[in-house]
Design a protein around this nucleic acid. Structure first.
Lengths: 209, 209
DNA sequence: GTCACCGAGTGACCCACGGTCATATTTTGT
DNA sequence: ACAAAATATGACCGTGGGTCACTCGGTGAC
């Protein structure tokens, strides 16, 4: 009697295909100017059906954000598991990883930045919010692990607080890039990559053993 | 014939009083849930009149954001002009200044974080956008000046790039705090202050002469 | 003093859009 | 075969940003 299981699977698939549609619409028109009707049409469903899967436009957007975190996480896991690199080297590569992610997935990177905008309008108890937080937790965990790895192999100063530094880095990632948008008009030839790289250089100097 | 001048002044005053009203409404209800009718009522004007002064709800919000930058700038100028402190000491106090600003003006700090949300929907040529960018430029300038001051008085390593570090710091400020909102549920007893302070400590270690 | 003019201010109105719900359709269990 | 349950529909609603034809009072020319 696998009917319940099959239904579950199908529900999951529908949900994913709605997110697919939402990504296309939101990424091309922008969240503000995209409508739920647009999404419904792209998903080949009626508008009402969307609300069987997501509480609101904002929650749908959070689902996209969650995907972004997963993409990023996967890349980070590859880095974490690379046995040819010392801890401090992995740390250094985080800079490149962040930049590459933002360049290769500009829309997903963008979605990360509007977290605040959507979070407030989602029911805090919803499954989407919960699993998004879960992903974020994992990402912070991976950064911490990399730093701790550096402490183990003596390439990172043993007094460094892995958890705090991990959070600071995440702040940089979600802060420097957008602030660059504000600054792009201000500083001629401004290059956010450059800023991130420079900042990492300073930090590496500060934490190496 | 001071009529034109008087009218200009009055127009300026009206504009400011609209921003006053908008601050009260937006800060108490949140941008999303506040309506232009609310603002009009608080400003003792009709809704139509608001649009004589601001192109859109988003532009009105940018005007608030600009105020936030001005408040922050004033505090930074006081620090910059303090003759009792060395360059590196001023740099160190920036951490406290950021934290104090965010604590004492939580709503204004918040408004800074929604820059991206509003920017896209304002005419890029509007006076509000232009003067907001101007303020941001000044703030980055002040941070750079502080760092350069440190290089002059030999408390900061002469190889430090003041402009890049300035942008990195601004990114931290607008990144760590909001990321803390995401993380608050993740890390028990998470304290964003702590993260900022810790991050500054590392940087100070990295840049001191 | 009069009067045409100008621009600030008004608020009824438009309409796009998020969200709902009574109803229809399909699937399931017996 | 048929009822019950699950899934989907789309007309409809309310809200709220933004507009515009109009009012009104101060201004300055004569």
């Amino acid at each position: 009697m696998g009917v319940a299981e099959r239904k579950e699977r199908e529900k999951e698939l529908r949900s994913e295909s709605i997110i697919d549609a939402a990504e296309r619409i939101f990424f091309s028109k922008g969240f503000e100017h995209a409508t739920m009707n647009d999404v419904a049409e792209k998903a080949e469903l009626s508008k009402g059906a969307l609300y069987l899967y997501f509480h609101s436009k904002n929650e749908l957007c959070m689902a996209i954000l969650q995907r972004s975190l997963i993409i990023l996480k996967k890349r980070m896991i590859l880095l974490l598991d690379d046995n040819n690199l010392s801890g401090i080297e992995k740390f250094a590569r985080l800079a490149r990883l962040f930049i590459a992610f933002a360049k290769e997935h500009p829309n997903h990177y963008n979605s990360l930045l509007s977290y605040r905008e959507h979070r407030g309008n989602c029911p805090a108890t919803g499954r989407v919010i919960k699993s998004t937080i879960e992903e974020n937790k994992k990402i912070n965990g991976i950064i911490s692990d990399i730093i701790r790895m550096g402490k183990s192999d003596k390439t990172v100063n043993k007094d460094i607080d892995a958890d705090k530094l991990s959070l600071a880095l995440w702040g940089n990632f979600t802060g420097i890039m957008p602030s660059s948008i504000l600054s792009e008009k201000v500083i001629p030839n401004f290059d956010p990559e450059d800023i991130i790289k420079y900042h990492f250089e300073l930090l590496i100097n500060a934490i190496k053993a």
